[in-house]
Design a protein around this nucleic acid. Structure first.
Length: 116
RNA sequence: CGAGCAGGUUAGGCUGUCGCGCUUAGUGUGAGGAAAGUCCGCACUCCAUAGGGCACAGGUAGUGGGUAACACCCAUCCGCCGUGAGGCGAGGACUAGUAACACAGAGACUAAUGUCGACUGUAGGUCGGAGUGAAAAGAGUUAAACUCUGCCUGGAGCAAGCUCAAGCAGGGACGAUAUUGAGGCUGCCCGCCCAGUCCCAGGUAGGGCGCGAAGAUAUACGAGGCAACUUGUGUACAAGAUAGAUGACAGCUCUUGACAGAAUGCGGCUUAUAGACUUGCUCGAUAG
RNA sequence: GCGGGCGUCGCCAAGUGGUAAGGCAUCAGCCUUCCAAGCUGACAUUCGCCGGUUCGAAUCCGGUCGCCCGCU
């Protein structure tokens, strides 16, 4: 899973991607023309100060790496933190990311029972 | 013992597994006292500038010292607050000029002659008081009012700046006796244009440098100084990312962990901050 | 990382040292059979917060909090 770095890649997903919502985070997705998927993490100032924003990004990165091998290729993902995410445990974030991925049908083999 | 004043220290630790940045590749190293706010002062870089002074504009303000510099620090005088230890203070000049002085008050700065008393002796003339008010005729009060005086200051900021450089467009040379282009104006020659070949600078996307081991560094001892600080000797000091690295889980332990995350680097100030530990001093009570 | 601006009633806002205008909204009354419109009245203990200067501060000065804009 490659991390997105360019401003225009973020703008593309943000502007024209489809989105799914969870109390802890928002997932936006759009198809790219590549043979692999890319991920970007966003933690705006609404999440909190710099410590909380860094922590939110770390937790989301941890959760995405946990599901890495189970995500379809050829998509650009944008994971946006919401203010409550800064106070959560990593297990909560993993299950939240799993819920979002299953809702957007990006999982190779879905297991709906574990969602939420 | 109680209440308080002024400081200082610490900022969880250890083990295992997984994971991340840098890397000299070794199982080396890897956020703070404020990394924050960006309020001051520098270094550094580019732009401007022959040199100097004045003016304008901005800053600053007891006095003396420290410092690379400062609005910071130290000492000290004065004023105010506190029983006190202590705390706070933009604290130069209204004998240069201008302006303002609400309400109250007779009168607020080219003043008025209202009131009480005294003197003079009939001019509201002189002196003193009461009352109003922050201030009452006095060289009035106010400069965190304009201003004056002394001192300081060119502007912008690492998104500074330097450098490499796709693509697109541009400039120069060649473009022939000739098949390489049987290109166009044009049927032929010249000329021009285009294609093509070679070269050129500027420079977008993007990359690299700037950017880190060592310097106005920290600390121990000696010397100088009331002190801030200076100086000599010894010792210590390896974050360097660029969607931006320090985390997750488990266990043990203590004092149960707050505020909070480096982004060119330093010196200050200000603000946020859990739980502790500790030094000096003051006031009160009690006991000797 | 850097530069600039703004906070006044529920909303829009005027006020640049001396009693905090005005409009919309709200409430009460009048008018009307009732509603709307109209008329009259009410509506700022703290001018984001803390401190300083001053006799006196929304206003001047310093600090702080929040919001907005600009520069890759």
């Amino acid at each position: 899973m490659i991390v997105m770095r360019r401003q225009n890649e973020f703008q593309r997903v943000k502007h024209s991607g489809k989105s799914w919502v969870h109390p802890l985070a928002v997932l936006q997705v759009i198809k790219n023309s590549l043979s692999y998927s890319r991920i970007g993490f966003v933690a705006s100032r609404h999440v909190g100060n710099a410590v909380k924003r860094n922590r939110a990004k770390r937790l989301m990165r941890e959760a995405i790496y946990y599901h890495d091998s189970n995500i379809l290729d050829g998509w650009d993902l944008l994971l946006i933190a919401r203010p409550t995410l800064g106070n959560c445990k990593v297990d909560d974030v993993i299950s939240a990311v799993y819920y979002l991925l299953s809702q957007s049908h990006l999982l190779i083999k879905a297991d709906i029972k574990n969602a939420r």
